[in-house]
Amino acid sequence: MAVQPGSVTTRLRVLDDGAWISVDDHREVRVSELWRLDAPDFCGCDLADLVVENFQEVGVDGSRVEVRVYGQCIECGASGITGWLPVGRVRADEFVEFDRSCVRRERRE
């Protein structure tokens, strides 16, 4: 998909069967990370401890790049697909990934 945060066009894609997120033809976000999530709809934990197994979708909200992932909370064992989670920002044509150790908060509709 191509989206336009600000004036530059950014190409965002899920590739290789959900293995990674491509931003402008560069591999930027990968599976096999552990993310701390504030996502009460995903599981009952205060903060889910999510193994990122598969990217499902990528999108953008303003300049913020968001993904939906398939994964498992290793705290409680719940698995499934999350809502939209922020992963980084496109700034002046550059993708900057959010610190992976910070809590990621699911977008509330």
Binding site: D16, D17, G18, A19, R27, V31, S32, V51
Partner: peptide, 10 residues
């Protein structure tokens, strides 16, 4: 696995 494969976890 992780030696070469993008999708791998371990």
């Amino acid at each position: 696995g992780t030696e070469f494969c993008s999708l791998s976890i371990v």
